[in-house]
């Protein structure tokens, strides 16, 4: 399907190299492909190869000879989950050098949150340069959709989504709400605790 020549005055003139066209040949329907049998055996060859190679690898492992594993499966609860370097995980509130929370209670994150799961109450900060700080800061992870908008919206880099923790499920909706101390890492999350 080569580029067509300009069909009218309005047709844009394409400069050389401004667009590359790759012509993909349709596979021909030959007799060999249409009787299925050959193609079926080719496919079976692939799956049989995988089957026997993997079986041999499993057997070698079982005999104590280590080699390549026979499966890519991660046995999750026993083996730790493998997270990517930039995985977006549970929220974390950051602190300044003096130990105070960075958050200035500007409510930008609460405003942008599409799931409306952030609740912040503000109070006066002792530091006159900061003016405001968060008194309470709750995130309902049961409603959060992990879009990451809150971390993006924050003007003072106070909230990140890099706690590298994915096991945040709990047995009650109330336990899905994390408060400020828990998000700051000052208090451990206890099921049935204060929220």
């Amino acid at each position: 399907m080569a580029m067509t020549e300009g069909t009218g005055p309005a047709a844009p003139v394409m400069g050389k190299g401004s667009m590359t066209v790759r012509v993909v040949e349709r596979p021909k329907r030959t007799f060999a492909t249409q009787i299925f049998l050959i193609e079926v055996w080719k496919g079976l060859g692939v799956t049989f190869r995988h089957l026997f190679v993997n079986l041999a690898r499993h057997a070698l492992r079982a005999l104590g000879i280590t080699g390549q594993p026979g499966a890519v499966t991660i046995q999750y609860p026993e083996d730790p989950a493998v997270l990517g370097k930039r995985a977006r995980t549970r929220h974390r509130l950051l602190k300044r050098e003096d130990g105070a929370p960075r958050c200035t209670a500007c409510l930008l994150c609460e405003t942008i949150c599409p799931a409306k799961c952030i609740r912040i109450t503000a109070e006066n900060a002792p530091d006159a340069m900061v003016e405001k700080r968060a008194k309470t800061f709750d995130i309902d992870l049961g409603m959060c959709i992990f879009c990451g908008y809150c971390a993006e919206a924050c003007p003072v880099d106070a909230i990140h989504m890099d706690a590298n923790e994915v096991e945040i499920s709990s047995y009650s909706r109330k336990d899905m709400i994390w408060n400020m101390a828990e998000l700051l890492g000052d208090a451990p999350k206890v099921p049935g605790g204060t929220a």
Binding site: H50, L55, A71, V72, T73
Partner: peptide
């Protein structure tokens, strides 16, 4: 099916 699809 698992073994031929590299699963367990």
């Amino acid at each position: 099916s698992a073994v031929m699809q590299d699963r367990i």
